[in-house]
Simulated scan of single mutants.
Amino acid sequence: MSVSTYPLPAFTQGGGTKVPLIGGATTMLFSLIDTPTLSLSVLPDNSTGGFLVRHGRTRIGRLPQDFREHYPQLEYLAQQGFSPEVTATVSMEENSGIKAILHFPAPGIIIPQNFPPTKPWALLPAGPLRTVDTSSGDSTALPVGASPSQWLATASVLNETVVLSLNDRVVGPLTAADSAAIIEVIKHYEALGLIPIARLFVLAEAVLVALAPVAELSEEALEPQINPLPAIEPYDLHTGQFPVVDAATGTWVVTMGADTAADPLPADPEGNLRPVTSPAMLAMTPTGKPVLVEMAEAAEAAAATDAVVDAAVVDAADAAEPAEPAAVPLLGGNPHTPQPFYSGLRQTEKENGSRHLIWLIPLVLLILVAVALYWYLGQ
């Protein structure tokens, strides 16, 4: 799985630290000794509890577990799908041989306290530290107690002076000398249609930016990466906690003590138990009627229809039974006395009618069975 890098500022003032690499790959470090600015990525190492250090895809060493506990922001970035990228230096020492040092900013400076612009923007190249004159800016531009911290400030030019601002509020200008050193870079970014952004470092004693002069920039620096940092919820400087909701994924993060997570919650046998309601009890049809109610009504309708069909079958069967032959009336009580002609004709018609009715019984039953089957399949 590919992991995007998240470049950290090369700024160690205000509580930053320099950490030596443990278990460094000597051959790899020798190949990097002539690199003036080296960027290494760190990833959580679950086997040792510390961090793995890589150069590209090559593992060159690790960092101890206590360092990981001191920098929860690095693990937070890894949870967001990013690999923190830190500046490092490689040097030769007489007694210890080759040595790599990683330069980490203070924990509160790892992640900016504000989001980057929504329009295309680029970071101004890092360089020497320069002081921002906050006495000439808006005193409400920075929140009280935000130290040490990092902010993404917009750099603009006003009367040939570089001014830093946050949320359209001026933090302060740079000196005339510092403005002259970087003003052409800002104008170049603006000509490219990009918003010039500087990392603003707020310390207890000063507000600083680290910007390189235009005279020291290479051709590559004049073609900056667009939108180099993603929008990540920052570390809370006042509570020392990370946000409980990730803005990107919408997932919740719950933090609790190890004892609470390991021990089950005490049971309360005397407490009132809330009845559990089945989801089927709450399901509704598109018409707004409960599903169970509609199922009961359908069952009652089916039962009533079956009763009607059964009654119809019985009535048809009763009607289909042949009638007993009518007794031939006797005249004078003598059975051998001849009867009138129309009397025999009437008897013959009755016999023929009963015979035709018997043939209709199967047809009627077949029709009733077909009607019942059609209704049943329609339910």
Results as ranks from 00 to 15, higher is better:
Glu184Val: 01
Leu124Trp: 06
Thr27Ile: 03
Leu152Cys: 06
Ala326Tyr: 13
Thr239Glu: 05
Lys18Gly: 03
Leu166Ala: 09
Val369Cys: 02
Asp133Gln: 05
Met28Phe: 04
Ile33Thr: 13
Asp34Gln: 01
Phe201Met: 14
Lys119Asp: 13
Leu63Ala: 11
Ile22Gly: 07
Phe67Arg: 01
Lys99Phe: 02
Ser179Gln: 03
Glu69Thr: 10
Ala370Met: 10
Asn95Ala: 07
Pro228Arg: 06
Pro148Asp: 11
Leu52Asn: 04
Asp246Glu: 05
Ser147His: 08
Pro125Lys: 05
Thr48Glu: 12
Glu93Cys: 00
Ile186Val: 12
Ala180Arg: 08
Lys18Arg: 01
Thr285Ser: 12
Gln113Trp: 08
Thr249Glu: 09
Ala320Ile: 04
Ser165Thr: 13
Glu270Thr: 04
Ser354Trp: 11
Glu223Phe: 05
Leu129His: 05
Ser91Glu: 15
Glu160Gly: 00
Asn352Ile: 15
Ser96Phe: 10
Phe30Asn: 12
Thr175Trp: 02
Ile182Val: 11
Phe82Tyr: 15
Val86Ala: 11
Ala122Ile: 06
Ala303Arg: 11
Gln241Pro: 01
Leu129Trp: 00
Ala258Gln: 08
His188Trp: 06
Met28Thr: 06
Met1Glu: 03
Ala177Asn: 07
Asp34Thr: 05
His103Gly: 03
Val90Gln: 03
Gln379Leu: 14
Glu160Phe: 02
Val162Trp: 06
Val132Leu: 01
Pro84Ser: 00
Thr251Val: 08
Leu8Asn: 07
Pro196Ala: 03
His238Pro: 04
Arg199Ser: 12
Glu184Met: 02
Thr348Arg: 08
Gly288Ile: 00
Phe341Trp: 14
Ala215Trp: 06
Phe82Ser: 08
Asn159Arg: 07
Ile22Trp: 12
Ala323Trp: 14
Gly127Cys: 02
Ala312Cys: 13
Val293Trp: 13
Pro7Phe: 05
Pro9Ile: 07
Thr118Cys: 05
Leu124Gln: 02
Ile195Gln: 15
Ile367Glu: 12
Asn95Trp: 04
Phe104Leu: 15
Arg59Leu: 12
Ala319Val: 14
Leu21Cys: 02
Thr12Asn: 11
Val3Gly: 02
Tyr71Val: 02
Thr37Cys: 05
Thr154Cys: 07
Tyr76Cys: 07
Ser96Ile: 13
Gly56Cys: 07
Pro269His: 01
Gly61Met: 14
Ser47Pro: 01
Asp138Leu: 01
Gly172Lys: 06
Thr118Met: 07
Pro72Met: 09
Leu357His: 11
Leu211Asn: 05
Pro9Cys: 05
Ala307Pro: 06
Ala206Arg: 15
Thr48Asp: 09
Ala311Trp: 04
Phe82Val: 09
Gly137Phe: 06
Ile197Tyr: 02
Val293Phe: 12
Pro116Gly: 03
Asp263Arg: 10
Tyr76Ala: 11
Asn352Ser: 15
Val254Phe: 09
